[in-house]
């Protein structure tokens, strides 16, 4: 083996063999994933959407080229911008709830031991339920006539009489947000826990000797050292929340008074209720641009500041 390497070295002294070998391996890897990933899953649908967004594209009948007219129209589409505003509102609270709860659960469940492992499993369990199933379950729990929550709140004296929590905006919004936190916090717990477990115990010990309190250790040692997994969780969480649809469709159907229509919900309505596929595609493109911009900003905020390890 070493003799062969030696020959290769002697034959081509100009190119570092290790470098070229690595490049070859990278190319091979790209070659394997390229067709599936780039073409089928991303480029094709994206190109299709762009193409559609430049047409008046009914479900039946022939599409007609209209150039940028859809984009001009959406500029004045108040309902779309309102739905986008609501989505941002939801994303803010869902992200705080999800990452906060996820981090708290991760801190709690990162230890070893059988009981902790049991908790870890319990926290993660809701993640494997489908969003639609979880939403249906929640809709049933929140039902004013037969559900658990209205009866429970009444019995606890939190509400006077039986109140339909899905009938007004605030309780409706919060019940969906709580459902999402219940369902997804375990996922972010796993991501953040991987970061916590990668922190060597030495740092904590050194900080204890340095006299840092538990809170100071968390703030000055733990948080900075889980920045990378935290950035991943944040980007996933924000993009996931910006694309929220199922829970608002199934539990609230956009109500009360169409106040909980998210951006994707509006695109769905446009495309598959009003059958304006071209216009829906244009809305999708705008949402994509917003998502990319948001992700870039987050990555930039949480970037590694010339930290060589």
């Amino acid at each position: 083996m070493s003799a062969i390497t030696g020959q290769a070295l002697a034959a081509r002294p100009a190119v570092s063999p290790r470098r070229s070998r690595r490049r070859r391996r990278d190319l091979a890897g790209l070659l394997y994933v390229a067709p599936a990933l780039a073409l089928v899953l991303f480029v094709l649908p994206l190109g299709m959407t762009v193409w559609m967004s430049l047409h008046n594209w009914p479900l039946l009948g022939l599409p007609r080229w209209i150039g940028l007219a859809n984009y001009k129209a959406l500029w004045n589409d108040k309902a779309f911008w309102r739905s986008l505003g609501f989505t941002a509102h939801y994303t803010l609270f869902a992200t705080i709830g999800l990452l906060g709860t996820g981090l708290a659960l991760a801190l709690f469940a990162q230890g070893t031991g059988r009981v902790v492992a049991l908790y870890r499993t319990a926290f993660f369990l809701p993640v494997v339920i489908g969003f639609a199933s979880a939403s249906l379950l929640w809709a049933w729990l929140a039902n004013v006539d037969s559900g658990l929550f209205p009866a429970l709140f009444e019995a606890l004296g939190l509400t006077s009489g039986r109140v339909n929590i899905l009938a007004t905006f605030d309780p409706a919004f919060w019940s969906v947000t709580v459902m999402v936190v219940w369902k997804m916090a375990g996922f972010y717990m796993v991501i953040l826990m991987s970061g916590l477990q990668a922190i060597p115990a030495d740092y904590t010990e050194a900080a204890r000797i340095d006299g840092a309190s538990a809170l100071q250790r968390f703030r000055h040692i733990t948080l900075p050292l889980i920045r990378r997994p935290f950035a991943l969780a944040l980007v996933l969480c924000v993009s996931g929340s910006m694309l929220a649809f199922d829970q608002f469709y199934i539990i609230l159907a956009g109500g009360p008074q169409n106040q909980t229509v998210t951006a994707v919900y509006w695109i769905f309505n446009t495309s598959f209720v009003s059958f304006r596929l071209g216009y829906g595609a244009a809305l999708s493109m705008v949402l994509l641009v917003i998502l990319v911009a948001l992700s870039v900003v987050q990555m930039w905020l949480l970037r590694d500041k010339e930290e060589a390890r």
Binding site: E205, A206, A207, I209, D210, G211, R309
Partner: peptide, 28 residues
Amino acid sequence: PSRRGIAMVLQSYALYPHMTVAENMGFG
């Protein structure tokens, strides 16, 4: 540990990777 009047140098040094040398030394 912080109130025992000791300081410890660990085998791995356990220098906080996100702080400069000065910040590491002045952390306590």
